[in-house]
Design a protein around this nucleic acid. Structure first.
Lengths: 233, 233
DNA sequence: GCCGGATAAGTGATTAGATCACTTGATATG
DNA sequence: CATATCAAGTGATCTAATCACTTATCCGGC
């Protein structure tokens, strides 16, 4: 039941394409081989190759220009292979991501405390209550619930641009951080810290809400840093 | 030269799929019609349809399960249509964008002052010198040069995630804000303020650099606010 | 009656080669 | 010298069939 779906040919192709880009030392803007050559090199047909290309395009790894060629995209820098050896790189990028969140989310928590409507506050409470129900449940569900708290806080701040930014950070980088966070992170502590943030927001204390959010993310970062250098088990 | 690439069939398909999901009131986990039915309904062939599906899969909008079906993904909640009518950015949205930049960019300027390398500093100076050359040139060129200063500062901060965020804010929302900023903004003052930010970064004074960036963006916002309520001309 | 393995229908995954549409740089033209 | 034309290269799409996987059903054995 918990079997992971067998990787499909297109899955493997996507990885091999990333390998090709990285191993080839290609930088954003570089032009890659044509679809015809790629399909020959990987011994697949054009439509199959194109499925992999479209996925890479959707993540910003490459860019397809009709009549011109396939070019390396700007996002290639942070796309890594789900290769076990790459875990260190994952870790480093995860720390960068956390730094980014430490810059953005605390002000959002403060804004939420100032401007949040009663409805949004109620929604935030519901999210946290839901997370509480999963405290001893499946890891994945609790992790999702915890992430939802951050999204809800961002929404509550009332700036759609920043909300979108946070949302994309949690989503696009989600799969990568998930596997690390799920292993290392202390979800019980997360829950408690989320609760204290909620209290500050409910009290309308912007300064405290912002500081607690900052401390919370700093906590997560510290744990990850320590565990990366000193793996458990 | 500034022509936007004509939307490809697959582009349109991706949007029509999103429309289908939204209009159908589908929720995450719902099952969608089969590939055969979808390709018939949209009057495209299987490979073409699958390219669109792979893109949606990459963004988390849908999930493809071999032998089972196509299911709505959790990310569908935040995916909206790039409605052409929405392209027009209103003043209010521009102000929201500026608020977002006020949250993100000052810390980046501070980080740049702390961690920036001599090479990056030199690059920043070059950007500003280039902007100086255009001070009495074409509006568009000067505006671009000024925007480049913000990008370069973000890069100098050394966090690729945040750099990308700023880059996308300036790019994605670029065309819309451009027409407003070009009309209202005082580019000479922009240049001077950029110069003072550069000085703080060069001096390695993080606090001052951050504060000057904040003040700079606040200035821009104030001007826009006033002009929006009291249009010139 | 109930449980577990064969089974068949439904569905996604992939194949093959050809043709259309677009970009770009070379060439020809004024 | 500049502009217009063109051809080669490249991505986009089509066509129709076959393979691989999932799921629910059904049937036989217990």
């Amino acid at each position: 039941m918990s079997e992971v779906a067998r990787p499909t040919l297109s899955d493997a192709l996507t990885e091999r394409m990333l390998e090709l880009i990285h191993a080839g030392g290609h930088r954003p803007g570089d032009r890659l081989p044509s679809t015809r050559e790629l399909s020959q090199r990987f011994a697949v047909t054009t439509p199959t190759l194109r499925e992999a290309l479209r996925r890479l395009e959707a993540t910003g790894a490459i860019e397809l220009r009709h009549g011109s060629g396939i070019y390396v995209g700007a996002a290639i820098e942070r796309l890594v292979l789900p290769n076990p050896n790459m875990r260190e790189m994952h870790g480093a990028q995860l720390l960068e991501l956390l730094d980014a969140r430490i810059v953005i989310e605390p002000p959002l928590a403060a804004m939420a405390a100032e401007r949040g409507s009663p409805e949004e506050l109620a929604a935030l409470k519901r999210v946290l209550a839901d997370a509480g129900d999963h405290l001893r449940g499946q890891d994945a569900e609790l992790h999702d619930a915890n992430m939802t708290f951050h999204r809800a806080t961002a929404r509550m701040a009332g700036n759609s641009v920043l909300h979108e930014v946070v949302d994309s950070l949690l989503t696009i980088h989600g799969p990568e951080q998930r596997q690390i966070l799920q292993i290392f992170d202390d979800r019980r502590r997360d829950y408690d810290e989320h609760l204290s943030i909620l209290e500050a927001i409910e009290a309308g204390d912007a300064a405290v809400a912002g500081e607690r959010m900052r401390a919370h993310l700093a906590d997560v970062k510290t744990v990850i840093e320590q565990r990366l250098h000193n793996p458990p088990k």
